[in-house]
Design a protein around this nucleic acid. Sequence first.
DNA 1: GCAGTCTGGGTCACAAATGTCCCATAGATA
DNA 2: TATCTATGGGACATTTGTGACCCAGACTGC
Lengths: 189, 189
Amino acid sequence: MSGSDTQESGARSRTRRAILSAAASVLARERTATLADIAKAADVGRSTLHRYFPDREELVKAVVEDSLEVLHESLTAAALEDGPPLEAMRRLIGALVDVGDRLQFLFGDPRMLDGYESGAPGAGPQPAIELIERGQAQGVFDAEVSAAWIEHALWALVYTACKDAANGKLARHAITSTVIRTFENGILQ
Amino acid sequence: MSGSDTQESGARSRTRRAILSAAASVLARERTATLADIAKAADVGRSTLHRYFPDREELVKAVVEDSLEVLHESLTAAALEDGPPLEAMRRLIGALVDVGDRLQFLFGDPRMLDGYESGAPGAGPQPAIELIERGQAQGVFDAEVSAAWIEHALWALVYTACKDAANGKLARHAITSTVIRTFENGILQ
DNA sequence: GCAGTCTGGGTCACAAATGTCCCATAGATA
DNA sequence: TATCTATGGGACATTTGTGACCCAGACTGC
């Protein structure tokens, strides 16, 4: 545990995380959810929520940053710069699926990441681009399309698969393998 | 022009279509756009908008139905049941890209199509599923994954490519070919 | 027990979006 | 010209989300 926060009591830290987690979950499903809804989901009073996050903007910002951090940790753990690109890509897909809820929140609203994608101070998903370019340079990945497109296609497939799983249209254990299969080989036999 | 409507003057019909089109475009970009914003984009007064669509709910419903109709027409024109599955699939992709704006509106909000997808009276995108199943039966498309997944993967790629094009990250003329390439063959060389 | 902190619920005021109504005006039509 | 239709703009009340504030109760550490 031991949150990296400077001077926050255990209780405060726990409440804070509960709010962030609940907010990510609720906002992923319904972007226009009320602060009262979020407070309810986090099992705290609306006053308490306001005490931690003065206004909606700050709450959303905190959830975005927290989600980016979670995503970043998952990507770091995948060690994308190690080993053959294809294997690293499979680890990447697994890592993304693991944080599917956060992805659904971050990428569910195209405008959620305004101001983060390009000028972000370090947290951006640059590792994925680097991996893709490495694979392209080695002739493993399709170099006829841009690395950015491949990255976006990857987000799209993972996002869709997670959504399908959330709706019961895809078995949870099949998410990763399905995405890998289609992403690597397409739909042609 | 003789709109197919029963008894609506040319002016009313034109205004109605202008509002629907503007609403689809604005709501695709910003789902929480104000009715005033939509009226402004359609270049009509807010009163006029209310005259055509009593409340927001009815407007959104009308835009959904209109978009489904546009999509359906595009799919019909693609004659998906004719010719080899692979060629039909390429026509399908082209048809979807052509109505990218509407797709962005319809699929931008997962809850937009609540009540339409399964129980819709005829307008559903069944043709795509049928084409995919035909291709799978002929051994042309991957039969190891469900037809529903292939369909969703297709939506996702088209949607992403259209969004990239809207953001200037992908040349407009390259949308179709890029989607076809990745969707058919994946990213492996 | 006692002081301090955290919390939940309640109230209040404010701003924004919405829906309704009314009226003057421009354009088409007879 | 006279009439009818469609429109834009303004005024208005209502609703909803929001943010600020206060207060009583619960909990913790001394």
